[in-house]
């Protein structure tokens, strides 16, 4: 895997993955085997459990906040001290039986509810972006690698352009100039538009290797159509790379979403988002550090778990393909 010349890293940058050098070198590593290996790895299991909790939080957000008693947009003026400029009552940012993670300074919104709803936003955006970049990356990578010639030229130039482009600056500019509209959808589109070349580049290279393998020629010689060659012969052999690349890109997209929301161009208030919470906590960090610590911890642990899990999956697949 060659790394292109020096360029400025962006929030979007997906880690350059050292995949098994020879795609399609062995039999497929079954999904069951991947899961089995992960279940026997303590660190992976821990990450899996944490991510499961976050996902469940996101899915059942309305139910959970009903149980905890406070919605994400309900103001609890009783929980803050208006004489002190809105600092929450009690120590640790107002953590109590009433407000499990404390409250937001100044307006007293329940932090637990906002974390739960924020998980929804982060995960929906990150997963949608992953699916979209996955589709774009695989399709364009396959096209460029299989057809070569002018198709490859055209796709590769677009990829070079997108990867060399200062994506973050462009995203900030475009998101702040566009009318609010449907922000989450817009975020997904913008993140994916800049994210797919990183996957496509890997897929393109591996497709080129695979297209020259004799089994593709043999399939062609037995009467297979190009479509069948691409989707039946080549694509399945890319499964490992696609799984690894996409898993490792999810934490990047969560970070990007949080970053853009932190900068004020992500999801618009009052929709809760972890990045936005961190952003508004900055001016309070000396009087109410918990307001920063809680969303910060969730963001950190989510990104960490996804990265560790992605790495583990990669090593299982690599080991599987090497045998």
């Amino acid at each position: 895997m060659t790394v292109a010349g020096p360029r400025t890293p962006t929030l979007l940058e997906v880690e350059e993955v050292g995949l098994a050098g020879d795609p399609g070198g062995g039999p497929p590593t079954s999904t069951g085997r991947i899961l089995g290996k992960l279940a026997r790895d303590k660190a992976a299991l821990l990450c899996l459990v944490f991510l499961l909790i976050v996902v469940l939080m996101a899915v059942f957000a309305p139910l959970i906040t009903k149980l905890s008693g406070w919605g994400p947009d309900e103001f609890d003026s009783g929980a803050i001290n208006s004489d002190l400029g809105g600092v929450p009552h009690g120590s640790l940012g107002g953590i109590s039986g009433e407000h499990w993670f404390g409250v937001e300074p100044q307006n007293g919104r329940d932090l637990f509810a906002r974390i739960v709803y924020g998980a929804r936003v982060s995960i929906t955006i990150a997963l949608s972006a992953t699916v979209l970049t996955g589709i774009l990356g695989v399709v364009f990578g396959l096209l460029a690698g299989f057809y070569r010639g002018w198709v490859d030229q055209a796709i590769s130039r677009v990829m070079d352009f997108l990867m060399a482009f200062p994506a973050l600056i462009f995203m900030i500019a475009i998101l702040s100039s566009l009318p609010a509209g449907n922000r989450p959808v817009l975020l997904v589109v913008v993140i994916s538009a800049f994210g797919w070349p990183y996957l496509a580049r890997v897929i393109r290279g591996q497709t080129m290797t695979l297209a020259n393998r004799e089994f593709v020629e043999a399939a062609r010689a037995s009467g297979a159509k190009n479509v069948a060659l691409v989707f039946r012969e080549i694509l399945p052999n890319l499964r490992g790379s696609i799984i690894v690349m996409t898993t490792l890109s999810v934490p990047g997209y969560i970070g990007t979403e949080a970053g853009l929301s932190f900068l004020g161009v992500g999801v618009t208030p009052p929709t809760a988002s972890w990045g936005q919470m961190i952003s508004s906590s900055v001016s309070w960090y000396s009087v109410d550090p918990m307001f920063f610590a809680i969303p910060g911890t969730f963001l950190f642990l989510t990104v960490l778990s996804l990265t560790v899990l992605g790495d583990k999956i990669r090593s299982v697949i690599d080991a599987g393909e090497a045998t």
């Binding site: 062995g26 393998r213 089994f215 043999a218 037995s222 009467g223 012969e233 052999n237």
Partner: peptide, 24 residues
Amino acid sequence: LRSVRGNAISMVFQDPLSSLNPYY
């Protein structure tokens, strides 16, 4: 030609190790 390939005329290639798709 596709209807001829593998049907009326078949071909066997040099390298049996890579002529089969490892995935299936």
